[in-house]
Simulated assay, not measured.
Amino acid sequence: MTTLVVGATGATGKLLVKQLLDRGQNVKVIVRSADRLPEHFKDHDRLSVICASVLDLSDEEMIQHVKGCNAVASCLGHNLSLKGIYGHPRKLVTDATHRLCKAIQTTQPGQPTRFVLMNTAGNRNRDLEEPISMGQKLVIGLLRLLLPPHVDNEQAADYLRTNIGRNHVSVEWAAVRPDNLIDEEEVTEYEVHPSPTRSAIFNAGITSRINVAHFMADLITDTDTWNKWKGEMPVIYNKTSS
């Protein structure tokens, strides 16, 4: 089984790559610089490294990279700097999601490819009409105006919901929504819910990046987990934060 990971040098992406390699998976990563990969990855016999900016790849190159992959995972995000938040590309996550899904469709895989998107608990699943307080609506409205990365996350998930849908012949998907992200060394107990159980703005939970990586790897490698959450936007919290 082979998985393509984009955003593999990010804080969560590199943890996902390790999770997949530890499970015996073959992994391909698209990274701007191999120097940003952990040293123990670089000579791994089941890791293939493609040095490129994902949005700079031609359609033909993108097709070649997704061909033969059983799953594609996106841990892309914007750097927390002025350039990362307000510079280009403002639709990094959305455009990469669109182009990767288009490439998958072009390859016409024999069975649907699993697409796992790292998203955010601050984004609602509009298929479920998740309740939200007036105060949170106001804050989210401000975030849409002031923080382009929030809009990018919303639009990436909406593309999967509305353009790919739940019955696509070539692509199945899940959008994983962690809450307030923290770093921990080991996987701990965590909970997964169809919708937020607390306000991401006024009562945020905690989710460790390594738990997000573990759950994303479960979605990619475990059929029962995938069948439970495909076409959904599961929210993940560390167990101690619920």
Rank of each mutant, 00 (worst) to 15 (best):
A8G: 01
T9C: 04
A11D: 12
K14C: 04
K14N: 10
V17G: 09
K18Y: 05
K18N: 11
Q19K: 10
L21T: 08
G24Y: 05
N26M: 07
V27C: 06
K28S: 13
V29T: 08
I30G: 02
V31I: 04
V31Y: 04
R32V: 00
R32W: 05
S33C: 01
A34C: 00
D35S: 14
R36A: 10
P38K: 05
H40V: 09
K42N: 03
D43I: 11
S48Y: 12
V49G: 02
C51G: 05
C51D: 09
A52W: 08
S53Y: 14
S53L: 14
L57W: 11
D59F: 01
E61V: 01
I63K: 15
H65N: 06
H65S: 00
G68T: 02
G68S: 06
C69W: 01
N70G: 07
N70P: 00
V72E: 01
V72P: 04
C75W: 03
G77R: 10
H78N: 10
N79V: 08
N79W: 09
N79E: 10
N79K: 15
L80K: 13
S81L: 01
L82I: 08
L82V: 05
K83R: 15
Y86V: 03
G87V: 03
P89A: 04
P89L: 03
R90H: 09
T94W: 08
D95Y: 06
D95H: 10
A96W: 00
T97H: 11
T97A: 07
R99D: 09
A103K: 07
I104E: 07
P109N: 08
P109W: 03
P112S: 09
P112G: 02
T113R: 00
T113S: 01
T113D: 00
R114P: 03
R114K: 12
R114A: 02
R114I: 01
F115K: 00
V116H: 01
V116F: 03
L117V: 00
L117K: 06
M118F: 00
M118Y: 01
A121V: 00
A121L: 05
N123G: 11
R124C: 14
R126E: 15
D127G: 06
D127K: 11
D127R: 11
D127N: 14
E130D: 08
E130W: 13
P131A: 06
I132G: 04
M134K: 13
Q136W: 00
K137M: 11
L138N: 00
V139A: 13
G141M: 13
L142P: 02
L142E: 04
L143Q: 13
R144Q: 12
R144T: 04
L145F: 10
L145C: 11
L147C: 14
H150C: 10
D152P: 03
E154T: 14
Q155F: 12
